[in-house]
């Protein structure tokens, strides 16, 4: 009836690595932000699993704060994307190379 905490760790690692790969291989800025959401959710799964395992509610409260920060990040990130699209008419990452050598 019980599930070892290792399974939760494996699941969250898979999701986190998928997010890392997404940040590195996608060229659409919105897809990159979605990959960041994947990474945040992987850490949240870890927090809740350990909160259950250690029987401490602190983990769940931290997920609450992570959610707040994720909401703020999404609002600011999407505003930046809209501003970028307004100035360059593109959301392809390779069109933004002003600071590249």
């Amino acid at each position: 009836m019980t599930i070892p905490i290792t399974y939760y760790l494996i699941l969250s690692t898979i999701v986190f690595l998928t997010g890392v790969a997404g940040v590195l291989i996608r060229r659409n800025i919105i897809a990159i932000l979605l990959s960041v959401e994947l990474m945040l959710n992987a850490t949240n799964i870890n927090f809740v699993a350990f909160s259950r395992y250690l029987e401490d509610l602190g983990g769940q409260v931290f997920v609450f704060f992570a959610l707040t920060v994720a909401a703020a990040e999404v609002a600011v990130g999407l505003a930046i994307i809209i501003a970028l699209h307004r100035s360059k008419e593109s959301i392809n990452l390779e069109d933004f190379k002003l600071l590249k050598w």
Partner: peptide
């Protein structure tokens, strides 16, 4: 919903290939 708004607002096209 915010993501969907922005995707449809910017008319994001399909990526033709990965980075």
């Amino acid at each position: 919903v915010l993501y969907l708004f922005v995707v449809m607002l910017l008319n994001a096209k399909q990526d033709d290939r990965y980075h």
